[in-house]
Design a protein around this nucleic acid. Structure first.
Lengths: 198, 198
DNA sequence: TCGAACCTCTAGCAATGCTAGAATCAAGCG
DNA sequence: CGCTTGATTCTAGCATTGCTAGAGGTTCGA
């Protein structure tokens, strides 16, 4: 029995090794540099080994993406916990989201641009995705006013996602990024006035 | 002289043919099906001809994207013109944007996902991109209240872009799409109340 | 009619994701 | 201890990708 256990342990270890190697390589040289050959070389195995762990290259990227959602969830929750007021929590969470995307462009890419097949609203949705959305919901929901909290959170998520992607691709010049961010927070928090709520 | 003119005309014709073929092929079978070989076959020339017109495959996609921005600008302007009130114009333009992305997923893909090198805030920014943003600015700017119209428009664009991309990738379930859209319009138009402004 | 410039095509390169079948290794039995 | 069996890993290769060099042909101008 012990033999099989050891093998299973080694397999799991190698599984994590592949994911970590893919992420490190992407962060170092971009996703285009993540080829099956370079990945295999990095983990010191041959390419077919990758396919005994993952269905294909996309599945590896997906695994990195799921990891990313987990980290995003942690970051959002931490930001929410450190705030004292509902508006403060919203502001902190929105800023944490934007900062996460800014500091982890490669990860954010895997989560949203590189991956299309991640099941989202379905039974087999990974825990991490739920957790990330829950982090947003906790901060945005209370400020929905008369509106549906879930829908309001989805709206805020849309705005945030659009915000970070348009900036990332250079669609929005980085100069007034901070003004846009504060305006986004004010709009979500209060209702679009001059924003004295903060 | 006439000879060169005819050649230039034929070249321009073929130029458009390539762009149209790329777009049609993408709309029929997705961007993955748009390879240089299939493209060449479709225009009934060999592959190297493509490279005498465009720097590479990406440049062809970019050309399709620019075309898309032009059409988007037209759609937004038309929507704005048909409205009578400022709030009505905003509602119409937002809906037109979402509808454009929904009805032209391939085009929207070329404009935002497939293309990274399109110069946006720079001197060599194509006319079409300016026009598209101007269409948004005309509808959103008047409702900025005390806020800066340009920044407010960028914010609305972010929300819209996030809205359509999250839907397109299945990140947001299509069921409550309409509720989200009306909530987005209400939030942009008035300030997040119950939305009786519409 | 001939030379020359221009244009297009054939053929091929390097790199990609992925896979079949050979080779190797370890475990378990006599 | 030696051999067989089963699993695991690697070598080698396929089909496809974007792109390009150099050959081949065609058309224009004198």
């Amino acid at each position: 029995m012990s033999v099989q256990e050891r093998r299973a342990r080694e397999r799991a270890e190698r599984h994590r090794l592949i994911i970590r190697a893919a992420r490190e390589l992407a962060e170092a040289e971009g996703w285009d540099a993540v080829t099956t050959r370079r990945l295999a070389e990095r983990i010191e195995y041959s390419q077919p080994v990758l396919y005994s762990h993952f269905k294909g290259k996309d599945a590896i990227v997906e695994a990195v993406a799921v990891e990313g959602f987990g980290e995003l969830a942690v970051a959002l929750r931490k930001a929410a916990e450190e705030a004292s007021t509902p508006v403060g929590a919203l502001s902190a969470v929105v800023r944490a989201y934007a900062e996460f995307a800014d500091h982890n462009p490669v990860l954010y890419d895997a989560m949203f641009a590189r991956t299309t097949d991640l099941p989202f609203g379905r039974p087999d949705t990974p825990e991490e995705l739920h957790a990330a959305f829950a982090g947003l919901l906790e901060a945005l929901g209370p400020l929905a006013g008369g509106r549906d909290p879930g829908t309001f959170t989805e709206l805020g998520w849309s705005a945030l996602h659009g915000f970070v992607t348009l900036h990332r691709d250079g669609r929005l010049p980085p100069e007034h990024r901070e003004q846009r961010l504060t305006m986004l927070i004010e709009t979500l928090a209060g209702g679009g006035g001059a924003g004295s709520e903060l």
